[in-house]
């Protein structure tokens, strides 16, 4: 395709010339270049009024565009601080985990350290990205998996497979999803391969349809391990992990389904 033609009035007389000058100014404003100004004369005709109006609109546009940039910087700073504050909370918990003798209590602390970290990562993903209000979710999932693998000690050889389409999610949706995934992946690491020396954990993220203004997404966390114990009802779980998963799915307005044969697969469908 050829470059867009510039709209110009041909056979410019003195009025045509003035209009062309104004058109050039409008074009540079459209490109956020506010240095160009329409020449103004000391006369009180409509052309001059038009030029003045355009120049004044340019000044206003420039000042609001600058404040938009400032807003971005501010937002970045806020995400940075939230992440740092979450980091401090998790350091405190980790310190306390080291102090307690009771094994159950120390597990409680370290579980929560991981949950907080999954939230902090959302903010970290945000301040490292161009878009400050939507989370690049596949990028987030990559760092979440890295983090879980680092934080959790296991002896088996576990393959992690991430298949994520590049979609953005709102912050609260990303945080809920991150917490869910954190629970499910740590469960797989903890329970799926107890009597094995290798295994595979897959994490899939796809958009399955687009309903008018809403997207519908699908998250799958699947392992090829032992499968859930027969007596477990995920909706009536007494343990915190699965309770969190069902609660957060509800919060997402999503649906949860579980398959347990040749391993365990959790599927969450949710609007975003």
């Amino acid at each position: 395709m050829s470059a867009p033609k510039k709209i110009r009035i041909k056979k410019a007389g003195s009025e045509g010339k003035k209009i062309n000058q104004i058109l050039e100014v409008v074009e540079s404003y459209a490109k956020l270049d506010f240095n160009k100004k329409a020449p103004i004369e000391n006369s009180n005709n409509n052309f001059n009024a038009l030029a003045i109006g355009i120049n004044m609109l340019g000044e206003e546009l420039q000042s609001s565009t600058i404040s938009l940039n400032e807003k971005d910087i501010l937002l970045k700073e806020i995400h940075h601080r939230i992440k740092n504050n979450l980091q401090i909370i998790s350091s405190l918990l980790r310190l306390q985990a080291d102090q307690v003798q009771d094994k159950r209590l120390s597990v409680f602390f370290s579980d929560n350290v991981r949950r907080i970290k999954s939230m902090a990562l959302v903010h970290e993903t945000l301040y490292n990205s161009e878009n400050l209000s939507k989370v690049n979710f596949s990028q987030y999932l990559r760092s979440l998996i890295d983090h879980i693998r680092e934080a959790y000690h296991y002896t088996q050889k576990i393959d992690f497979v991430l298949k994520a389409e590049p979609h953005n999610l709102k912050i609260d949706v990303a945080i809920a999803c991150g917490l869910i995934i954190n629970e499910l992946i740590t469960n797989s690491i903890k329970y799926a391969f107890e009597k094995r020396n290798s295994g595979k954990i897959e994490l899939l993220f796809t958009k399955i349809k687009q309903k008018k203004s809403k997207n519908i997404f699908k998250l799958v966390v699947r392992d090829n391990g032992a499968g859930l114990p027969a007596n477990i009802d995920i909706y009536q779980s007494k343990s915190l992990g699965l309770q969190l998963v069902t609660m957060l799915t509800e919060q997402l307005d999503g649906s949860l389904s579980v398959e347990s044969n040749k391993g365990t697969a959790f599927t969450i469908i949710f609007p975003g």
Binding site: N44, N45, N46, N48, A49, L50, I52, G53, M56
Partner: peptide, 15 residues
Amino acid sequence: GSPVSKVIGNFFLGI
């Protein structure tokens, strides 16, 4: 009164 003053005046009604 003049076209220029009209344009400028209107900025003071909004922006």
